[in-house]
């Protein structure tokens, strides 16, 4: 969007200028709208699971902004004539079940004929204008918490290669289909100042979006990262999506990796995630309490993964 002039309004609280997860538009003193849209090509073979994952991924941006999703519109590109129409129905069913789980309603949608199957949602949510969580609002001393395990892209590559068990493939599907709803609800009760969700740019890529413009740096403890353990072995085998190398190339100038960090862990840090967890910055005094509450709510694998520090110029240190 570089170079294009955007219309502005005093009611636009979060627009395009800072690569935030969704747009926020203030309606009244205590209500703002969050709007986001996301769709992609299938990441799993099962159409119902694909629908669930695409919907969970689209809703995630609203949760990451500190909001509550309320309404959704379906978006579908479908190869009519080449695929059975029952697939269309199963995808929509998967999305609908996630919309229901989130306590939302489906208000409509649009489908077009497309050579390649695509599905996703346009989502609208509510947030209090003073409780909007942008990415870069980091404060030194805060702890960073991640709520889903990393390695989804690598394991999906292994699934594509036919090298995983059915159990592992199902496990990874269910991680991707899990809503970030519980994590977001817990987060609302704690002094969290910044949040994002981990998706295609990988853990480091999304962390970098929090760091750039914050004025601070972060330290990540590589041994405390929640991982899908099988991803380590698959990374060793070279089952790494090309996007992981692109993510690494793009952010390498701001990342300093200690030489003790194993190569496979570095691969996982840059691995593109689909519908990954929330990454939040919370005041240190409340970090343990937040972690306990997340664990109690059975959020997939909440862990403190690092901290915000006041040294260097917007750097990421992996140690």
């Amino acid at each position: 969007m570089c170079g294009l002039k955007m219309p502005s309004s005093p009611q636009l609280l979060v627009g395009l200028e800072h690569a935030d997860d969704a747009g926020v538009y203030q309606i009244s003193e205590d209500l703002a709208l969050i709007q986001t849209v996301d769709f992609f090509t299938p990441v799993v073979d099962d159409p119902y699971q694909f629908g669930q994952i695409a919907a969970a991924n689209a809703l995630s941006d609203v949760y990451a902004m500190g909001g509550v999703p309320k309404t959704a519109l379906n978006l579908m590109g479908f190869p009519i004539g080449q695929m059975d129409i029952s697939i269309f129905r199963k995808i929509i069913q998967g999305g609908l079940d996630k919309i229901r789980e989130a306590g939302m309603v489906l208000v409509g949608g649009h489908s077009v004929e497309d050579k390649e199957l695509k599905y996703g949602l346009s989502v609208t949510g509510f947030v209090h204008p003073k409780r909007v969580l942008v990415k870069r609002n980091l404060k030194p001393g805060q702890q960073l918490i991640l709520t889903k395990p990393l390695g989804l892209g690598i394991v999906n590559t292994a699934v594509k290669a036919g090298l995983t068990t059915t159990e592992l493939a199902d496990q990874v599907s269910s991680i991707m289909a899990a809503l970030n709803k519980d994590a977001a609800e817990v987060m609302a009760h704690f002094p969290v100042s910044a949040c994002t969700d981990v998706t295609g740019f990988g853990f480091i890529g999304h962390l970098a979006e929090m760091v750039v413009g914050s004025g601070y740096s972060v330290e990540i403890d590589s041994d405390s990262l929640p991982l899908i353990h099988a991803a380590v072995e698959f990374a060793q085998m070279g089952l790494i999506p090309a996007g992981a190398y692109k993510n690494r190339e793009f952010r390498k100038s701001m990342v300093d990796i200690a030489s003790k960090v194993p190569r496979e862990i570095v691969d996982i840090l840059f691995d593109p995630q689909t519908s990954g967890g929330l990454l939040m910055a919370v005041d240190t005094s409340a970090a343990k309490g937040l972690l306990r509450s997340l664990t109690k709510k059975k959020v997939l694998s909440a862990a403190i993964v690092g901290r915000v520090v006041d040294r260097g110029k917007e750097k990421i240190w992996i140690q």
Binding site: A235, Q236, M237, G238, L239, I240, P241, A242, Y245
Partner: peptide, 11 residues
């Protein structure tokens, strides 16, 4: 492509 190169080396 470089990604495939790195992956084949790793394998």
């Amino acid at each position: 492509n470089e990604a495939s190169q790195q992956n084949v080396v790793r394998f």
